[in-house]
Design a protein around this nucleic acid. Structure first.
Lengths: 256, 256
DNA sequence: ACATCGCGTTCGACATTGTCGAACGGTGCT
DNA sequence: AGCACCGTTCGACAATGTCGAACGCGATGT
């Protein structure tokens, strides 16, 4: 590779995409090949790959190619927090009502998890609004479930120090990664007094189409209300959090 | 290549794009690499290539990567004919007024060049509206200049027969391709009674960002008014057509 | 019906091409 | 100053993508 940053097949693939984007109609394989001055077989490999990953469609009857509409998801960017909040508010409200606990919704931010929505615990006790606060990635149910379902967040762990907040805070990187693996398998995360003593929560991932986590929703409250005496989270809470998260994810997927 | 349609580097590049699209913030190279479980150096090659082709941007100060806004041009599709017409009407009018001849604007269509706009010759003679008509690719100034600047059109020549309309129609493929090469160099095309005897025209390409032809604009009329006695097109006409085409292209580029 | 043409697709050998471990140089912590 | 981390470059290796040629199929024309 003489000059770095010149991977041939990628440049060719992008050229194909650009050509298809500019074409007013579906293009035949041969037309693509000749436009790019590439052999037919080579072009076929590229186009077939693009079709395989869903960026290009092939008309069943004419065998011609066009851009798949899914390519419009690309510029979508990182999901507007306001959109996420508006789409999840109703689910958060009913989750709080059904569990009788407070609910948080968070998204990844440079320094941790940013709380973009907070439904107070319906018991009416005085509470402080957590909206806009940043919670630690390694010591909150929200953070840990994001860690499990948002791969690029994991590498941020390496540099940020694992601050100890309580005696239960996980400060060992290896142990945390091990827990993240479990969370990924189970589908929800748990925090038992790791950030604030006697307070804990359960969180589940909100995903965008494709499965990548873009946010998380969490129920939290006094540990003795969230967890049973065995130490495990109460089943009706985990179930409700998980299904609320799934419902929000599906709702997001529906608006293309 | 065991399974066709699985070019590794392209799939990886698309995965990078998808990851960047889903990320709410700029991502570090390492974060991308670890998310995709690829070596850093490999990832760097892919990202550098994507940056090189303009789909990815790198923040100068943080060195982190994000999608380039240019990626939004991709789903743009093949430029709405109505948009092209509305953007070029004013130029077409003044071109007709300045040259005293009729003006056509055309776009590629499956069977030839479709006329999407027609300004009558201002001399007031009775004329038939050509809007919506299909003109042959090989025997019109509009068609030939599109041929020169829209590569995928050229391969359509191979199968369609070169119908003879007049004694001056080019029916030899090799000769036509040779002329197309000249047109590409000069920047405008000429038709001297090749479709209708005694009638001819001069056309120039309307380009989208990147240089690909998406349409063409043409002045046409009686050959003795368009061309000087030497047979060459009159200089003030070619100049005006070319600069009108360029102006429309730039105007199109301005709306992102 | 048969032959022909043009297309998309597959095959397989080759060497070009991308991959990846390791090392470099710069920047911001502590 | 020292360290730690990151983006980038280097270079050897072989896995990978490339591409000429051949296949199969449908449409066309005879």
């Amino acid at each position: 590779m003489p000059v770095p940053g010149q991977i041939q097949s990628i440049e060719r693939a992008v050229a194909v995409l650009r050509l298809l984007a500019a074409a007013p109609q579906d293009l035949a394989l041969q037309e693509i090949a000749e436009s790019l001055e590439l052999p037919k077989a080579t072009t076929h490999g590229i186009v077939a790959t693009l079709r395989h990953v869903g960026l290009v469609q092939q008309n069943r009857s004419t065998a011609r190619y066009r851009l798949d509409t899914e390519i419009q998801d690309l510029p979508g960017g990182g999901l507007d927090p306001n959109l996420l909040r508006s789409q999840s508010m109703n689910w958060a409200d009913s989750l709080a009502a059904n569990t009788g606990e407070a609910v948080l919704i968070g998204i990844p931010s440079p320094d941790g998890v940013e709380v973009i929505h907070h439904v107070f615990c319906p018991d009416g006790t005085p509470q402080r609004l957590l909206f806009g606060e940043i919670r630690p990635v390694h010591a909150s149910a929200l953070g840990k479930v994001l860690l499990a379902h948002t791969p690029w967040l994991r590498s941020r762990l390496r540099q940020s120090s694992l601050v100890r907040y309580t005696s239960r805070t996980t400060t060992d990187r290896e142990a945390l990664l091990e827990e993240v693996r479990r969370i990924k398998a189970v589908g929800y995360s748990v925090d038992v007094g790791e950030y604030v003593s006697e307070s804990g929560g359960v969180a589940a991932p909100i995903r965008r189409y494709g499965g990548l986590g873009v946010g998380a929703i969490s129920v939290f409250g006094p540990t003795d209300r969230i967890f049973s005496t065995s130490g495990a989270p109460r089943r009706e809470i985990t179930d409700r959090v998980v299904s609320a998260a799934r419902a929000i994810s599906e709702q997001l997927a529906e608006l293309h």
